[in-house]
């Protein structure tokens, strides 16, 4: 490599204009091309290439409190437009989707709130979001009724998490719900760690009141061939990671098991690689495991998902227009 090869692409300082659109702003990020701004612009380009590649199956891995924090409609829109083909998420994100589907709400609060007072008032806190306990209780009873209905309709069936999500989605009538949008678009929603959420306790309470034959049976291994099959039959694999955790690992691992490796990857996280945990690990590290292809089109954005992801999606909506379908 010659010295001049290092100086091919100068940083062009961003120019702002009044009434500029989000994609125009992203273009300015791209001209800067450095630090967080450069990475956000690259993430937009990679996601656009993923969407335009109709042979690519796009996995969305969701962890962290992204649904309580306002990304619910955005994710539902992405599913509706098939900008996401498979969702892998935590039980908690689904629970918070359902809480709103059953007319519960998340409320603006404060990170510095008096937690002892919140405890007395039966209000739960997720950083600066408050959730009233009664909204959870309403969800618990509605979901328990739904489980009754699902069991009645499918005698002795053993469910995988994605099958259960489809059954629930079918029974919702909130168009902004992620599960409803996924049902309509036939986008599978995998919840590999479903047991670590309100789902488990609702099921436990529900099952206690029933004879054992008529309680819901969920087999957490049943979904494994489903997700690996999707990876195996796809020509190319794309991955958008919001946060990290179990969802990120499930997507990456499925790609490795399918002996494919991921072709396009966008990772948005605040986690660090030094502790060796999966959430903060670099995409390069995943190459050594065969989870990501050595020449994959990939970028990591170190940033708060609630700030970065709406910017990226707004830019894509603008680039692709309303009529683009997949």
């Amino acid at each position: 490599m010659d010295r001049k090869d290092f100086f091919k692409d100068p940083v062009v300082h961003m120019k702002l204009k009044a009434r500029m659109t989000i994609n125009q702003l992203i273009q300015e990020f791209s001209k800067s091309g450095s630090f967080g701004a450069g990475r956000v612009a690259t993430a937009c380009d990679i996601y656009e290439r993923m969407i335009r590649d109709r042979e690519c199956t796009i996995f969305l891995a969701l962890a962290g409190a992204v649904i309580p924090a306002g990304l619910r409609s955005i994710v539902a829109d992405l599913i509706r437009r098939k900008f996401v083909d498979v969702v892998v998420t935590t039980g908690a994100n689904v629970i918070h989707d359902l809480l709103e589907a059953f007319e519960g709400h998340h409320y603006k609060g404060h990170w510095n709130a008096n937690d002892v007072m919140l405890y007395k008032y039966h209000a739960f806190r997720i950083y600066d979001i408050f959730v009233p306990e009664e909204d959870f209780m309403k969800e618990d009873s509605k979901l328990a009724e739904m489980l009754d209905d699902i069991i009645e309709e499918s005698e002795n069936r053993v469910f995988s998490s994605n099958e259960l999500m489809m059954e629930i989605g079918k029974r919702l009538n909130d168009s902004n719900s992620i599960l409803r949008a996924a049902y309509n678009a036939e986008v599978p929603v995998f919840v590999p760690a479903i047991r670590d959420s309100e789902f488990a306790y609702i099921h436990w309470l529900h099952a206690k009141r029933k004879p054992s034959k008529t309680s819901l049976i969920l087999d957490t291994f049943k979904e494994v061939p489903n997700i690996v099959d999707i990876a195996t039959i796809s020509s190319r694999l794309g991955m958008i990671v919001l946060g990290g955790g179990v969802p990120r690992n499930t997507v990456q691992h499925s790609a490795a098991i399918a002996r494919k490796g991921i072709d396009y990857a966008v990772l948005i996280t605040m986690d660090r690689p030094e502790t060796g945990g999966l959430s903060g690990s670099t995409l390069e590290e995943a190459i050594s495991w065969g989870k990501i292809k050595p020449r994959a089109d990939k970028v990591t954005v170190i940033g708060d998902i609630v700030i970065v992801f709406p910017l990226i999606v707004a830019s894509l909506f603008e680039r692709l227009g309303d009529d683009f379908s997949r």
Partner: peptide, 17 residues
């Protein structure tokens, strides 16, 4: 304590503001 979180809505060509 209760002030609802509004889910973010994106539109094509929306501006920074």
């Amino acid at each position: 304590f209760l002030k609802k979180v509004k889910q973010i809505k994106l539109r094509r060509g929306m501006t920074a503001s």
